[in-house]
Amino acid sequence: MTRYIVRRLLLMIPVLICVTFVVYFLMDLAPGDVISQLAPADATPQQIEMLREEYGLNGTIIERYGRYLWRLLHGDMGTSFFLKRPVFSVFLERLPNTLMLAFASILVAILISLPLGIAAATHHRSWLDGFSVVLSMLSVSMPAFWLGLLLIFIFSLHWKIFPSGGSEGLKYLILPALTLGTEQAGNLTRITRSSMLDVIHQDYLRTARAKGVSEKKVIRHHALRNALIPIITVLGSTLGNAFGGAVAIETVFAWNGIGRLTVMAINNRDMTLATGCIFMFTLMLNMTLLVVDIAYAYVDPRVKARYSK
């Protein structure tokens, strides 16, 4: 098991390096010279050249990226061009907001989709089942930012219950978490329903019933545990993507998360900040996926046996 984890961590390194290269390279391709925007209007060519060196932007792309990577490997993510502050501290500042939104939304998604998906599977072909299918179809087809706008209209403009934007506290979290959670619930309900349906006709559930296990326990204990692997998989990738992929929702609710920070950095040609953010995001996503893979082992002994090999 430990060997498996170590191997996975080592495999992450080339992926992370390639991600930084791709982002750095793309940012470099972007038209416009960052330095000429940063420099004062009356700067002499020498001054511009000095600035360029100061920001590590002299030399060819390979040289520049090499320098960036070298520093990154030493734990230095560089300084943001625009905010003039270390990338890592800017990132850390936004991190709590992102984590809060990600976990709150996944909680909303779980609370909606697990009961709904299980009920849909146990009442296959009933109205409840149909309801869950329609609901999850709507939720995966609806642009989340649009749902966010509708919620703002209803709950902040019309009823004035929740603020329409900002990230100052719990009150501000509810609407974005609901929006993002609803978006995620669609997929999660679908996968819960279908994996429960796969399990529900298995012989071992009949064995459990024949032992005298109550129906509630048969479903929650015996069936759910077996249906859990696909559910955890989707849960993991959903959570991982919520760390940086909720850009549109962060924009709608003016929520100061990493996603919005990254888009801002990209739009400002802030190479170090953009690359740093995406690097950190990729790291978080990969860590989440690793945690998911480890969780498999605890859910299913057969997976655990495979890992130890």
Binding site: Q202, D203, Y204, R206, T207, A208, R209, A210, K211, G212, V213, S214, H222, R225, N226, V299, D300, P301, R302
Partner: peptide, 24 residues
Amino acid sequence: EEVRGKDISMIFQDPMTALNPVFT
């Protein structure tokens, strides 16, 4: 539920699928 397993028990045809794979 009280009767099942206590007064009357059943052994199923296929032992490969009759046991829950995630419990000892």
